[in-house]
């Protein structure tokens, strides 16, 4: 709460105004340019209706979601496991540092292109890319969590020779929880983008592939419709998942 006189209703009104301005601007652009360049909001909605009625949206959403979820799950599990180990053992953290740095710096599209050659087109490739790039996010966050633990607690545990199990339950887990949950919400958001990108280049079905096909058939209205669907999903996920997780994460936050 940076703003002491923040009013939730007023905030919402401004956001809605922002949305209206985007739509207005979009409408103006579409009036100025051919529909193959910028389809109007109405054309986009009618394309979306068509995609919904034909069942294409549901079918491809399911495919993309399965890939995203599997990749996310794998990446979170691996990243959390290595993060915990690296948090406990500094030598391991240092050894893993180059790998994690590489994964974070190399543009994701390069992994997609390479994974296509290694695994061919389709689900395996998409899941691999999502897992591979979610992994460093989780790893870094969990390691950071360890660093945020008050060193007094650790010293006390050492002095009193607290068993590892108790140390985990009472010190490490609560200490790491906040960064872990923050990592999850970051991982969810990037896993959507990664799935779409992987599908765009190398899949036979899924939302990303539908976007690629609309692009090659110059069906810009369909392309816009898919993007709109994507925006709805990201917003829905944000409200249903990421925000609650962040609230939960803040509860675990150790007051300074």
């Amino acid at each position: 709460m940076q703003n002491s006189i923040s009013n939730p209703k007023k905030d919402l009104a401004y956001k809605l105004l922002g949305v209206l301005l985007i739509i207005l601007f979009w409408q103006l652009l579409s009036m100025r340019y051919l529909s193959v360049l910028v389809p109007s909001p109405a054309e986009t909605l009618s394309a979306m209706k068509q995609l919904l009625l034909s069942g294409e949206i549901t079918r491809n959403l399911r495919v993309s979601f399965e890939r995203q979820f599997t990749g996310l799950l794998l990446g979170v599990m691996i990243g959390t496991a290595t993060g915990l180990l690296a948090g406990l053992k500094r030598s391991l953290e240092l050894m893993m540092n180059p790998l994690v740095k590489c994964l974070m710096t190399i543009p994701a599209v390069i992994f997609v292109v390479m994974a296509m050659v290694w695994f061919g087109m389709g689900s395996v490739m998409a899941v691999f890319v999502v897992a591979l790039l979610v992994f460093p996010i989780m790893h870094i966050n969990v390691v950071e969590g360890f660093k945020s633990i008050d060193s007094n607690y650790l010293q006390m545990a050492r002095v009193y020779r607290v068993p590892l199990k108790i140390r985990f339950q009472k010190i490490y887990l609560p200490g790491v929880m906040h960064s872990f949950l923050a990592g999850i919400s970051l991982a969810v958001a990037s896993s959507i983008r990664l799935t779409i990108m992987a599908e765009l280049l190398g899949a036979r079905e899924g939302m990303g592939q539908k976007i690629a096909i609309s692009r090659s058939y110059l069906q810009t209205d369909h392309l816009f419709a898919w993007v709109l669907v994507l925006i709805f999903i990201v917003f829905a996920l944000d409200w249903l998942f990421i925000r609650p997780v962040n609230r939960l994460a803040n509860r675990w936050k150790v007051p300074d």
């Binding site: 051919l34 193959v36 360049l37 692009r215 090659s216 058939y217 110059l218």
Partner: peptide, 11 residues
């Protein structure tokens, strides 16, 4: 290389 690149060159 791709249809939309040509489209961009045309427009």
């Amino acid at each position: 290389q791709k249809g939309d690149q040509l489209l961009a060159m045309i427009t």
